[in-house]
């Protein structure tokens, strides 16, 4: 009797196993059904990297797997740095990045004998935003941005930035230091300097949106898509880099007029994988051909047509 009871217990624990197995067989059936059209490829493609680029790759992979259900694409979001770590370890064939590859990452790849190629996918315009009720800020120059964001050991008031602005303490909201977004802002605005230590840092851009929405004297920056989604809750600040104040819009970002905060998004591919694995080549080709329209769909800005043409030529060069 006792033995039977133990067995019942064990049987219940293995329910999960059985469930998994059942669903597995149905999955196989689906793949076979749709595997009858045009040229079908087989393969596994592992992609990881920036969470900013993730929505684009998710969209690309979704479309690609409708055409090639036997090519199994997986996309992760370990972050630009985390993605490169896996790329260097040879665990992924492609690595997404929201900033150009760093020298030390290049060196590590060289050491491992991994040749790689950079492909531009889309633009993102880092948008600087303030609270909806903020009626004094109409634009900011790059120098003013630096004054606001660089640490000077004291708290700052809006009146310190430009005369006539209210004497209210500035509350800062910034993406976390692990993100490619921070890295890019660091490069073009902070220029390696220490970000204000009182700034609230968060890896989740929605937290930043909430922060600035709830704080009258708040200011923050994040990806264009987050601004677009919260347009009615936030006020975007036009940026003046010496040629007049420019507001981030699809047009100004695509033309490069919105400078210096418009940044390219990349994917890096291992040359060997492209040359030897037909599926990786085919997937990458599909990515470049569709990145423009799909990135617009998920909230980014497409590159000018020539850029994609250049990308395609580079890809053909790798194929040999």
């Amino acid at each position: 009797m006792k033995k039977i009871k133990v067995l019942t217990g064990l049987a219940m624990m293995s329910t999960a196993l059985v469930l998994g197995a059942c669903n597995n067989t149905s999955g196989e059936g689906n793949a076979e059904q749709s595997a009858e059209e045009n040229k079908q490829m087989q393969g596994n493609i592992q992609i990881d990297g920036s969470s900013t680029v993730f929505p684009i790759m998710e969209a690309v992979s979704e479309e690609y797997m409708m055409e090639q259900p036997n090519v199994k694409v997986t996309v992760g979001y370990s972050g630009t740095g985390g993605g490169f770590e896996k790329f260097i370890a040879g665990e992924t064939q492609m690595s997404n990045a929201s900033r150009p590859i760093k020298d030390e990452e290049k060196a590590a790849l060289e050491e491992k004998g991994i040749d790689f190629t950079e492909f531009k996918l889309a633009y993102d315009g880092l948008s600087v935003v303030v609270n909806k009720d903020n009626d004094w800020v109409d634009s900011l120059t790059v120098e003013e941005l630096q004054k606001i964001w660089l640490d000077n050991g004291k708290s700052k008031k809006w009146s310190d930035i430009r005369k006539g602005w209210p004497e209210e303490e500035i509350k800062l909201y910034s993406p976390g230091t692990d993100s490619g977004t921070y890295d890019y802002f660091d490069e073009v605005i902070l220029e390696g300097g220490q970000i204000d230590k009182s700034a609230v840092l968060s890896e989740d851009d929605n937290v930043l949106v909430q922060g600035v929405t709830g704080e009258k004297s708040g200011i923050g920056y994040f990806g264009y898509a987050y601004y677009l989604e919260n347009k009615d809750k936030l006020k975007v600040v036009p940026i003046d880099a010496g040629k007049g104040a420019v507001e981030p819009t699809n047009e100004t970002i695509e033309s490069g007029e919105y400078a210096p905060l418009s940044r390219p998004l990349f994917t890096y591919a291992a040359n060997k994988a492209v040359a030897e694995d037909e599926a990786v080549y085919d997937y990458l080709k599909f990515t470049i051909e569709n990145a423009g329209s799909l990135s617009e769909e998920v909230g980014y800005v497409k590159l000018p047509e020539e850029e994609y043409k250049k990308d395609l030529e580079t890809l053909e060069g790798l194929k040999k």
Binding site: S26, D48, F54, M57, E62, V73, G76, G82, E91
Partner: peptide
């Protein structure tokens, strides 16, 4: 490094 986009069953 578990991916987030997977459109097939293991």
């Amino acid at each position: 490094g578990i991916p987030a986009f997977v459109a097939f069953l293991p």
